[in-house]
């Protein structure tokens, strides 16, 4: 396949307090083997060379594990492909002459800092509210294998722990709900014996913080699960609901 020429419609916003707008750009000679972020690098090189302000976007590891890259591409979080982050999205998913719309995550709890970069500290604060276990790590921690854990529980906990906190769930949700993220973080502890001690307080505090941050209410559309780069299942939301009900009965 020949290299592609593309039109990009990108959200530009100077800073958090400024009003943003969509701006059109042209990029030429894009290889189908490039990742989406490499295409963005080409655009930014072009902008820098012509003395313009480059487009700000989040990225770090560029191998699909850090959760930094975001971007709402052609109406979907991380673009049209499944089970991937934006850095893993290949330009072969697009055709020569395409117009690609690129927007930041949209949610009241994720304010835009600049261009395509949003503030995802709300996730951090939810984690700090209870997404941990209090273990003495003073050098005499016990061997992990001394606690028997079923293979099923271990696998499901690992699947929940695969969440990289990118925020695609919130961005895809018509209600800007963070329940897939919080559900995964609650589940990874709820499934393991180490998580039981603080289970009641954990789910109550994390849900309270989630509500405080201004995320919406889940209506089970399932959009989050489809767009999640790590395949986090809706079952985690159901588990969180059970944990929350249990915690409230216990008081």
């Amino acid at each position: 396949m020949d290299n592609m020429n593309l039109t990009l419609k990108i959200w530009r916003q100077k800073d958090q307090s400024s009003k943003g707008q969509m701006v059109d750009y042209k990029v030429t000679d894009i290889s189908e083997h490039m990742s989406f972020l490499e295409m963005m690098d080409v655009l930014n090189e072009q902008l820098v060379n012509s003395g313009e302000e480059p487009v700000a976007f989040d990225h770090d590891c560029r191998e699909g594990i850090c959760g930094m890259c975001s971007l709402y591409i052609n109406g979907e979080a991380h673009g049209p492909d499944r089970g991937i982050t934006t850095c893993q999205l290949h330009m072969r998913m697009f055709n020569d002459g395409d117009t690609i719309t690129i927007e930041p995550w949209r949610a009241a709890a994720f304010p835009v800092i600049k261009d395509l970069v949003v503030d995802r500290m709300a996730f951090e604060r939810i984690q700090q509210a209870g997404g941990y276990i209090s273990v003495n790590t003073s050098g005499n921690t016990q061997d992990a294998n001394s606690l028997p854990i079923s293979k099923i529980a271990a696998d499901e906990a690992m699947d929940a722990a695969a969440c990289i906190g990118c925020g695609a769930c919130v961005a895809s949700c018509k209600n800007s709900s963070a329940m897939l993220f919080v559900g995964a973080k609650v589940s990874q502890y709820a499934l393991l014996p180490q998580g039981q001690v603080e289970a009641t307080e954990r789910v109550k505090n994390m849900v309270a913080q989630m509500d405080l941050e201004g995320f919406g209410n889940c209506t089970n559309t399932g959009a989050c699960e489809v767009e999640c780069p790590k395949g986090i299942s809706l079952d985690n939301i159901a588990r969180m609901n059970r944990e929350f009900m249990k915690a409230n009965v216990k008081g």
């Binding site: 419609k9 959200w11 969509m22 709402y72 052609n74 109406g75 979907e76 049209p80 719309t101 927007e103 949209r106 949610a107 009241a108 709890a109 994720f110 304010p111 835009v112 895809s172 018509k174 209600n175 800007s176 709900s177 201004g214 995320f215 919406g216 209410n217 559309t221 399932g222 959009a223 489809v226 767009e227």
Partner: peptide, 14 residues
Amino acid sequence: ANGVKYAQNNGAAN
């Protein structure tokens, strides 16, 4: 909770 609306949102995809 939504904030600013997307210019393009492909809800039918998911």
